[in-house]
């Protein structure tokens, strides 16, 4: 009774009392309920359509903005697009990116428009938390997260991706048509190609004017 005083009073018209249903003879016999349960089970067993996806044979459709394995993009000349600015390495919260920059070979006509390029570029895929901040930090859209989700390896060493491996991920994803979506957000550096839509498109929602 003491609890009843602690309960706040309720308006009478807001309370609707339901009646407990009466038990019929068939309900108390249990057998019709058991039969209907069995019928449901049999119906599903006989004519139910399996919703299982046969995984290794049928792969799931991964959305293109999925944050999977990284890739290093190539430009039109097939060179690595990265300009070794260390922005991604700085932005990385997991400290999994390591870049060693080198001056671009000036006497080579192939490289004459570049000052720097990454001599080595390694990402520890086991350490990475796949947050996508490197992708956002990159001024030239050189590093991107692809929709490759099934990354496996037998040793820790082979999970540390170097430049060649990251570039090969680019080649694979381009070949298989699983290109990640371009956000086209912000202004890209002169080393990146600027798509015409980038200037016209409004900034994506959810971010301030600075993007």
């Amino acid at each position: 009774m003491s609890e009843s005083q602690t309960n706040p009073p309720v308006k009478k018209k807001t309370v609707k009392w339901g009646e407990a249903p009466k038990l019929s003879v068939l309900d108390a016999l249990y057998l019709p309920a058991i039969a209907s349960g069995l019928a449901t089970a049999v119906r599903h067993a006989v004519s139910g359509k399996p919703t299982t996806r046969q995984y290794p044979e049928v792969e799931p459709e991964i959305p293109p903005n999925y944050r999977g394995v990284h890739r290093l993009n190539r430009d039109e000349a097939g060179r690595v697009k990265c300009v070794a600015c260390y922005m991604c390495q700085t932005a990385c919260p997991a400290n999994c990116i390591e870049i060693i920059a080198a001056p671009a070979p000036k006497d080579d006509p192939h490289w004459k428009d570049r000052d720097k390029f990454p001599a080595t570029f390694t990402i520890d895929e086991l350490r990475c938390i796949y947050c996508g901040m490197c992708e956002e930090a990159c001024p030239v859209d050189a590093i991107e997260l692809t929709s490759v989700y099934d990354l496996t390896g037998m040793t820790r060493e082979e999970m540390v991706f170097d430049k060649e491996k990251l570039l090969s991920v680019f080649d694979q994803t381009v070949k298989s048509g699983r290109d990640p979506v371009r956000t086209n957000r912000g202004k890209l550096g002169p080393a990146s190609e600027v798509s015409p839509t980038a200037k016209d498109a409004p900034p994506p929602p959810g971010r301030g004017k600075r993007g």
Binding site: M1, E3, Q5, N7, K11, K12, W17, A20
Partner: peptide, 26 residues
């Protein structure tokens, strides 16, 4: 079934128990 329904009529349920014990006040 008749025994259960009789117990319902006597108010031997949680719902009526709440009501008679005054757990809900208006």
């Amino acid at each position: 079934a008749s025994k259960f329904n009789a117990s319902l009529a006597e108010g031997n349920t949680l719902r009526n128990g709440l009501r008679t014990q005054g757990a809900v006040s208006y």
